[in-house]
Amino acid sequence: MNPIQETLDDLRRTAGVKACMLVMADGLVVAEALGARYREDVIAGLSSYLSMTANKALHEGGLGSFETFTLHAAHGKAVFCDIGESFLVVLLDQFADLEAGRSEIQGAVQRLRRSSRLGS
């Protein structure tokens, strides 16, 4: 198994994490660790839409791009982390403690950045 997949599988085992995926800005999936109820193409498409829209709005406002975007919805949470040419998407349930999971997500981001650099 490659280190990117290993990192995602480890992150998927964190309490409250329902799915995680490394996806390019255009929606191309690099690797994923999803639960049975999620469809890869749906998450990739929606994540690409949200991150591109948010970054476009930030650029137009002269603010640059986001490094982390945390979203809270009524029945779930999502975290998007910039990894250079791709970004990490983590979906969590609504009860997940983001503070407690932050170190795992940050750890995964560091490992993914390292792996991305080694791969290029």
Binding site: L46, G64, F69, H72, A74, H75, A78
Partner: peptide
Amino acid sequence: RFSRRLDIGSFKRGTLQGP
């Protein structure tokens, strides 16, 4: 749109961190 299409209810809060 993201929250509704992903079926996780309505969007309540968001935090963007960056430069």
